[in-house]
Nucleic acid binder design. Structure first.
Lengths: 215, 215
DNA sequence: TGTACATCAGTGAACGCGCGTTCACTGATGTAC
DNA sequence: TGTACATCAGTGAACGCGCGTTCACTGATGTAC
């Protein structure tokens, strides 16, 4: 029984909103954070922005257009989370330690984001029109790399360190990504949901170790 | 622009249907096969069964009740697919070869099912109330084992063959499952969707190899 | 074997829901002269 | 500096959609006597 805000706009004072596009996008991100992609509801976003429902159409062509914008924002937030974890781990003594550290950091950050921001995580992977492995500033962190590219650069280090034969480098992203992504999915809407967090973290470490060893 | 069947029941002759519960379940499975869990629509199932919409409530408490029944059927079908693949691979010379063969069979069947029956696959993992790793005849194949248990028994062979230290056996299902499940998800509604099938199969083999090596 | 009756599977009609989206509008802003 | 006007952001009202679900009903079946 959610209390429902009145359909009419909240008080605003000015006739013009000023920055409605940004307000709608932020409302969309908030909705996604709270309830995943299906919680991104045009009318609710306009309610939160204090504006009449159809006003959204000045800034987004459709509900899906808003969804895709939120999705990009979610990917960018994931990229920043990975970057932050990488920054904590930098500077190992050997190339090998450095490479291993980077891959584990990417994996850990990915899993932490999936569990801690599950709404945004699910939104980031909501069935997309543009699948977007390629460079895209709207989906990148401060480094200008998106999550996929960040994983790729960790794998490049594996090659540099001699831990991964160059001929197995192409496509290696998908191996690592599959393991960690699958684990996240089994938790988020799969059979691992009831397992307590501490135990999940332990299995998560094993998943990452499996990738490291199995690549 | 789907053509819409008339809401009124198709001709039937008899007032009683005879086996409406089964008919609704089968319609539900067909819908899931065609379009995944969200395609399981009560009214459409009753249309296909040639019955008025509310007749469904004689046999299912709600739409979700039907969904869960379809979900169990989908899991059972997955179990049978795995069993079929296992049956093809049986009888290797050594325990070791046998174990590896079993694990690869499970992985291959899982991926083939995910790609070939993506609607049922997604339904099998639609967010569940009963998460169901435990034994459940409605979700099992001929062996009486459900998909999770079939994976488990392949891993038991790894332990018997000395390929996996017994202390790492608990939870090993989740490692293997994560990798293969994640790969399936990246294809079904993730960034691997546009990749051609042949290439996916190749990466799939590498994912399974990673699990085998990384466990 | 025949009839009365309880059972309950399927019918008929109707709800409310909240959404995305369209249309014709109004009124604030900023630019051209 | 002052006014006329085009622009276009936000308003107001309304749709249709198809769904899941509820209610009071009808009519076939099978069982008890």
């Amino acid at each position: 029984m959610k209390k429902r805000a009145p359909e009419k706009p909240a008080r605003r004072g000015t006739y013009r909103h000023g920055d409605l596009r940004r307000a709608l996008l932020e409302a969309g991100v908030a909705l996604a954070r709270e309830g995943g992609p299906e919680a991104i509801v045009l009318r609710e976003a306009t309610r939160r922005a204090g504006v009449v429902p159809n006003a959204a159409y000045r800034h987004f062509a459709s509900r899906d257009d808003l969804l895709q914008a939120v999705r990009s924002a979610a990917l960018a937030e994931l990229a920043r989370a990975i970057e932050a974890e990488l920054a904590k781990t930098r500077r190992a003594k050997t190339l090998e330690e450095d490479a291993r550290g980077a891959l584990r950091a990417v994996g850990r950050a990915y899993l932490r984001f999936a569990l801690g921001e599950s709404g945004l995580f699910r939104t980031a992977f909501a069935t997309p029109e543009d699948l977007g492995l390629g460079p895209n500033p709207a989906r990148s962190g401060q480094s200008g790399l998106n999550p996929f590219e960040l994983l790729g650069s960790a794998l490049d280090k594996f090659v540099s360190a001699g831990l991964l034969p160059p001929e197995r480098r192409p496509g290696a992203e998908f191996l690592a990504w599959s393991a960690v992504h699958g684990f996240a999915m089994l938790i988020l809407d799969g059979p691992l949901r009831p397992v307590p967090r501490a135990q999940l973290d332990a299995i998560g470490e094993r998943v990452i170790a499996m990738v490291e060893k199995g690549l």
